[in-house]
Amino acid sequence: MVKLIIPVSKPEEGAAGLTGIWRSFKPIIDQEKCKHCLMCWLYCPEGAIERIGEDKLTVKINYDYCKGCGICADICPFKAITMVREE
């Protein structure tokens, strides 16, 4: 029996695994300080910041895949995101 292998990759989440384990610092959003400017969503290299709620203006971080680069905390104009060392 010959098994045909087609060398085509299929799009799938987690191509390199759960990249959240790479993280040494974790971004925490202070929802009270957040002004919904969406800068963090725009600049997140991973797309790990989700927009939730009815108007899609509340931001939530997907910690399964966030690599902890810290761009969101650096870019936030309202200092609403802080980086906390992972336990």
Binding site: P11, G14, T19, M39, P45, E46, A48, Y65, C69
Partner: peptide
């Protein structure tokens, strides 16, 4: 920013370094 499509074409859990500009 608000007018941009929500759909992502680079999927989560890719192999880019943290803070990658190419992503």
């Amino acid at each position: 920013i608000r007018d941009l499509p929500l759909e992502e074409y680079v999927l989560l859990g890719n192999a880019a370094c943290p803070g990658c500009p190419a992503s």
